[in-house]
Design a protein around this nucleic acid. Sequence first.
DNA 1: CAGAATAATATGTGCAGACATAATACGCAT
DNA 2: ATGCGTATTATGTCTGCACATATTATTCTG
Lengths: 231, 231
Amino acid sequence: MTKDIRNWQAVQQEVLRRINAREWPPGALIPNEADLATEFGCARATVNRALRAVAEAGLLDRKRRAGTRVALQPVARATLSIAVIRQEVEDKGARYDYRLLARKLVRPPAPVRRVLKTGKAALLHVRALHFADDVAYALEDRWINPAGAPGVLDQSFDTTSANEWLLEHTPYTGGDIALSAHSATSAEAQELGCAEGAALFALTRNTWNGDTAVTRVSLLFAHGYAMQADL
Amino acid sequence: MTKDIRNWQAVQQEVLRRINAREWPPGALIPNEADLATEFGCARATVNRALRAVAEAGLLDRKRRAGTRVALQPVARATLSIAVIRQEVEDKGARYDYRLLARKLVRPPAPVRRVLKTGKAALLHVRALHFADDVAYALEDRWINPAGAPGVLDQSFDTTSANEWLLEHTPYTGGDIALSAHSATSAEAQELGCAEGAALFALTRNTWNGDTAVTRVSLLFAHGYAMQADL
DNA sequence: CAGAATAATATGTGCAGACATAATACGCAT
DNA sequence: ATGCGTATTATGTCTGCACATATTATTCTG
């Protein structure tokens, strides 16, 4: 008998090893918590902690009464951390700069109205450019709902980007993100300094605070941008 | 005094509410676990569970002895679940189809060799098309390391995509993903049925099992594709 | 006063036991 | 057989307690 596995991280490691080595093949039912606890010489709570962690990582499927089985299709989850643009730029060791292009309180076009469900209300439309070492990095096109972001109308966004101001002053409870590829229009090409029709990476994000829309932002990144994540 | 908050999800909810309502503003130090436990009328372990969950979500920063404080910059983490393509297609209610374009054991070009660190070894190169309702959905270009995927050389991949076969037969311990925008070459345009130079969404993924490379795959999605995620 | 040794403190983790809950299996009545 | 109620079972969670560990504050010493 090998020496006891008494902490949850060791248990997790051993579980991962067995899954990886196919000792517990995909789809197989694994021993229950109590049995594993006996085998490892630790408390059931410890096994529970470990199995819960592995299940959160997507490698195990757990159901009450039915037991725990190895996931058939370990859904590869990549967590992208969408940081503030300034930080993203500075993390790459570049000098960050920001320029406001436009700021206007208007009624948004139908698609935006429909998504944000703001009806006839006027929203604050902000367009800005983010630079890394004086080279255009991303083009921001944002709609802000004053009802969801109190105080936003007093902000000029001359020097602080809406990106940062909102993060600090406006709480949110949820949202969604869409990533896509976009062909640069001539205006975008000029602003981002690339050829018209160039393939650009686009990120569109809607943010909500409960039921009220906070903001919708489209970020168009300069040509060559790639978003990285780990598995 | 409000009624006791005795389970960790209720504690979590209350903590989130306080953060959201700025009762605990960004950067503030919150009461320690023991005090919160007394206030909520539950055990410290319960508070711990709740705070740990909130911290994992990125809204709290915890350090021993220093205490727990509200994150200054709640890094928005979006977890993309990269499913098997077949499943992704079928989930959209479309009929999935697959066609192998090429399969060859060759020494990969320098960039691939460099990333996978496979030296002079020959890798299996597989190119295939995925269809949704008979329309091209994604173009797969994959390099597989036979040393990291035993038995792969016996597979023809005529009917089963490498995507699925690998998932079922080859364990992995880690990897990385890059998302980007790519301008369609004429060959790609023809295969995916779009205009040359169209902006396409690209996903490149490297997978490892310990220190040995398993596979590197590039997926080029048809025009208009968007990857969705929630916050 | 500087630097090292020591104390204090908040989180991290483990344990044993208990009850809650969901899902399945089984047995009984029709 | 068929359907329903009940028993069983594995996971989910809470509690109270203990000790571990990282980090900061304080005190001691030269």
